[in-house]
Amino acid sequence: MSSGSNLTFKPGSNRHTPFTAVQEYAMSKLGMWIFLATELLFFAGLFVTYSVYRIKLSVMWLDSASTLNVTFGAVNTVILLLSSFTVAWAVDAVKRGKTKAVNNLIIITLLCAAAFLGVKSVEYSAKTHEYELKKVSIATLYANRLQKEGKCYTATEGKNNGLAVCKAIPFNPSNIGSRDKSRPVFANLFYTQYFIMTGVHGLHIIIGMGLFIWLLMLGLKNQLNAGWYTPVEVVGLYWHLVDLIWIYLFPLLYLASKPH
């Protein structure tokens, strides 16, 4: 059991500070919340571009969105929610001095983060293969080139029956860094946004994994206890924000086009 009054400084630290342990803890936590507010504003820019392109390009945008695999997104949502739960549990455990449980929970969280990235990499690599995209959903320049290459035709069966479709690659990594201006790096704006939004989110996951490795090292050195657990608390807050962003990204990207 711990309470506000029996907080201590980091074990082994002998630095002089004008603040009490309780004040240091409260300051760290408030600092993290302010950082999270700036993170939210940072992601807000991406959500604004999302709303603008979605409104502007409606048909093309929804067509491209329909080529995303909902299962990948749903599995990743569950993985991330589980990791958020284990982090919240770890914070609860460390406050009650259950340091061994904390280490185990952090390991589970790390495995969840790795699994999330694993699913993402399978998904990303799938998007470098050819898909049948409705012609309308492909950038004009790119569609013209595909037409010349004989990759466009009128579909005769399935959902796209009667529509002009092209065999296109939503994202072609070989185009990165290419000086050939006639080769658009991305087939369309939906995928530009998809890769930027999930890419930046994935970067947060990687940073989070680094932070959890740091927590695990502190835990293994027996430096976390019921009196000093500030790192677990603030890294936990960060991780929940990463989860929170994904909670919005999942319906916006994966479920956007569904009834159509």
């Binding site: 309470s3 506000g4 803890y25 929610l81 958020s84 609860d92 009650r96 999942f250």
Partner: peptide, 28 residues
């Protein structure tokens, strides 16, 4: 103070919240 006294564990509550989150993912 900023942290309330934790007289008992919240793990059960957290588990309920986690279950609710999974259900809501299915619903969405």
């Amino acid at each position: 103070m900023s942290n309330t006294e934790h007289t008992h564990s919240h793990v059960k509550l957290l588990a309920v919240v986690f279950t609710a989150l999974i259900c809501l993912t299915g619903i969405t």
